[in-house]
Computed example of a mutant assay.
Amino acid sequence: MTAPLHHVEHGQGRPVVVLHGAGVDHREPEACFEPALRAHGGLRRIYPDLPGCGLSRAPTDLRSADGVLDVLRAFVEDVAGGAPVLLVGHSAGGYYAHGFAARWPGEVAGLALVCPLLAGTRDVPEHRPVVADPGLGDAGFRDYLVVQTAEMLDRYRRFVAPGAALADEAAAARIGERWELSGTDGPPYGGPVLVVAGRRDATVGWAAALGLLAVHPRATVAVLDRAGHALPHEQPAALAGLLAGWLDAVDAVDAGR
């Protein structure tokens, strides 16, 4: 299945495709990941809106996560011209990125998953903010962030809420009826893998992410305190350092080290 995906991109070099989570659009990962990716240099950073999100339409016959993954593969082949890409995903974007690497490992040069939704999600903690202000923001903000400050509210209003307002809920419901990806039970992806989870993530937890350390032979896994599902907003410096190390690992593979 193919469907056009709206996207924005920056820079030149090796393509890195960054996938957002459910119910938002490219603006959230662009705000969170762009500083670290730009600082590394030599990367063409590509931020698509997934089907039914942002400015990307979801055809009525798109009714499964497998269909979304097929759309994503066609998009990656188009923008990368067949070259292996780096894949970065947050939340549901991590679910698709992980599935992509499992199905087509030769098309992925490196994989980074941040607060990924994973098969076998378990031991999800209750939502307990580190910093809370009952008078700050709306319920969506307070349920998403565990660091509830004026700075985080500004980021939420600029990078999360606008995409949420554009989400196609009917498309999400169709896709959600067949959410489990197929064709992902082959050998584990063997390239450089970074997995970052929030210790206070009340959406997907951190236990399933930690389990990927035993699955992928070249994985680095970090669980960050003072962070929930909105970890890319709440721990930007730590995330940037981890991404820099992952990118260095990809460069080392390219150099045969």
Score class of each variant (00 low, 15 high):
A170D: 15
R44M: 08
A172G: 15
G99N: 12
V160H: 13
H26G: 01
G228Y: 04
L62R: 03
V204F: 13
A119D: 14
L117T: 13
R38H: 12
P188M: 06
P84R: 06
R38L: 09
P105A: 10
T2G: 07
M1N: 06
H98F: 10
P134R: 07
A101E: 13
P162F: 12
L19A: 04
G52N: 13
R174G: 14
Y144V: 00
R199N: 00
V124T: 11
R103F: 13
A208F: 02
A139L: 14
R155P: 01
V68E: 10
D254K: 03
V8C: 00
G183E: 08
R158M: 04
D143V: 01
V79E: 04
Y144E: 08
L86E: 11
L87T: 03
R178S: 12
G67L: 08
A171G: 10
L62N: 05
Y189G: 06
V24W: 03
M152N: 11
P4D: 15
D66A: 03
G42M: 07
L118C: 07
L111W: 03
M1C: 06
V223L: 07
A238H: 12
R38M: 03
H98K: 03
G205T: 03
D201S: 07
L55Q: 14
D254A: 15
L19F: 03
G120Y: 10
L113P: 13
R73V: 08
V16P: 01
S91G: 12
V221S: 09
A58C: 15
G163Y: 05
P217M: 10
A164C: 04
D66C: 00
L242F: 09
A252D: 15
L166R: 14
V24E: 09
V68K: 06
E169D: 13
D168S: 10
I46A: 02
L118V: 10
L86Y: 01
G13A: 08
L231C: 11
R122G: 03
G186T: 09
Q12P: 02
V204R: 11
V79F: 01
D168Y: 08
G228A: 09
A219N: 11
A165W: 04
D49I: 02
G21W: 00
R142L: 14
G67Y: 06
W104A: 12
D70G: 12
G89A: 07
R45P: 01
A65C: 11
T149W: 10
E177Y: 03
A240V: 05
A237W: 00
R226G: 05
A74H: 15
